[in-house]
């Protein structure tokens, strides 16, 4: 007979193990976010290229990645890439897949942030003969960043909540561990409840942090140098 009563002793036993596995989850999220930001910015800049072919390629890459499921991309990197001699560990695969997938979403955030900067700022930069690098770095991006924070932050939280998909390629993150604990002890209630709670707490903390970052982002004086 299956018991539905909450077992505190068991909960206390699995909690430290889950928190330990949570480090893997956070590591994948953090590295995935960094990669997603780099890829997103790169795609956004490529889409503004004066060479149309480059812009279209970046656009269709973004559409392709956004229109296929993350899990398919994870499987592809993990099971198909080795056939081409690309053997990646579950963690590296996970970070790559998350970075690529969310990079495509972030590129759209960056693009609209950049588009939101007044046209006169570009013109002043041309008139002052600033290089494209200086224009982006010193003039455009610092002004675009504030508008990007909420949407970009939400995507990073979404990425965090998608990390359980990496259990499909045997990454021992929280959910994978909870499943193992459950099957070894024939009790799933406590591990899965705790996993849910840990996600809930961390997501709430992250979204509060993002709201704070947005609110406190200086209207003036923010530069990247």
């Amino acid at each position: 007979m299956i018991e539905f009563e909450w077992n505190w002793a068991f909960a206390w036993e699995v909690l430290p193990l889950l928190l330990d596995a949570c480090k893997i989850t956070l590591q994948a999220t953090l590295l995935g976010s960094v990669l997603a930001i780099v890829i997103g910015l790169l795609l956004a800049l490529l889409r503004r290229s004066k060479w149309k072919a480059v812009g279209y390629t970046a656009y269709w890459w973004m559409e392709f990645v956004r229109s296929t499921p993350l899990l398919v991309q994870i499987y592809f990197l993990y099971y198909v890439a080795p056939e081409w001699g690309l053997n990646l560990s579950p963690m590296v695969t996970g970070v790559l897949a998350l970075g690529m997938h969310y990079g495509a979403y972030l590129s759209e955030v960056f693009r609209s942030g950049i588009d939101g900067v007044d046209k006169g700022q570009w013109e002043a930069s041309i008139a002052l003969n600033l290089s494209p690098y200086r224009t982006y770095r010193d003039v455009i991006l610092p002004q675009a960043l504030r508008a990007m924070i909420p949407a970009a932050g939400n995507y990073i939280i979404a990425m965090f909540k998608e990390t359980p998909q990496l259990s499909a390629i045997t990454l021992l993150e929280m959910l994978q561990l909870a499943k193992i604990m459950g099957s070894e002890n024939f009790r799933y209630l406590e591990p899965f409840t705790l996993v849910g709670l840990i996600y809930l707490v961390l997501s709430l903390v992250a979204s509060t942090a993002i709201r704070q970052a947005e609110r406190r982002f200086p209207k003036e004086g923010f530069t990247l140098s």
């Binding site: 006169g120 700022q121 002043a124 008139a127 010193d138 002004q143 003036e220 530069t223």
Partner: peptide
Amino acid sequence: GMVFQHFNLFPHMTVLRNITEAPIHV
């Protein structure tokens, strides 16, 4: 050098930085 109808100053930089940005980097 061009002066614009709507100024197009860089709002996130101080007045002095607005002026020194291009001389330093260009």
